[in-house]
């Protein structure tokens, strides 16, 4: 086994498990930032340099901020944050369900004869070819994503500010 891969896998899984089990929401969010960084390291390890930096920029730089903002805007005091304890049944059934899904996936992955080519050099996709792909064959998709981003931003603004004036009238 590749040692780097093992380390990255450990970082990803450990931070995800810790984030899922923390009681403090801020800790969860910050651990998830670690998780996202781990995923970025994985991309780097796999040779997808550009995606790794994009992942770091978008997840660590933007989405983490949004998450923390959401936590702070909906906070009570720090001590009141984790009061939303789930019932034992829910947790147990969720863990069982998750374990079952993992079992199925693991068996499927291990049983399938996957045609691999480990000799392929890492980082085989250059920035230039990536750009040409995006602007050439994938141009329509880029446009659609652009529209999606704009619409979601506008939608978010509308959603978040919908109460601004009619607040007193709302029950």
């Amino acid at each position: 086994m590749n040692l780097t891969f093992a380390l990255i896998a450990f970082l990803i899984l450990a931070s995800a498990v810790l984030a899922a089990t923390r009681r403090d929401l801020i800790h969860s969010a910050l651990l998830l930032v670690g998780n996202w960084l781990g995923v970025a390291f994985f991309y780097l390890w796999a040779g997808a340099e550009f995606v790794a930096f994009a992942q770091a920029l978008v997840y660590v730089g933007a989405i983490s901020m949004v998450v923390l903002f959401a936590v702070l805007l909906t906070r009570r005091m720090r001590t009141e944050l984790p009061l939303l304890v789930a019932t034992r049944d829910r947790v147990v059934s969720a863990v069982l369900g998750g374990a079952a899904v993992f079992g199925v996936l693991a068996v499927a992955v291990l049983r399938t004869p996957l045609d691999t080519n480990p000799a392929k050099p890492a980082g085989s996709v250059s920035m230039l070819s990536l750009g040409q792909q995006l602007m050439g064959p994938q141009a329509a998709a880029v446009l659609i994503v652009g529209v999606l981003l704009t619409v979601s931003l506008l939608g978010a603004v509308v959603l978040a500010s919908s109460d601004a004036d009619g607040k007193e009238g709302a029950p």
Binding site: V33, A54, A56, L57, V60, G61, A62, M65
Partner: peptide, 8 residues
């Protein structure tokens, strides 16, 4: 990307 984490 490296600088994004500073405000964090």
């Amino acid at each position: 990307a490296a600088g994004a984490a500073t405000e964090l």
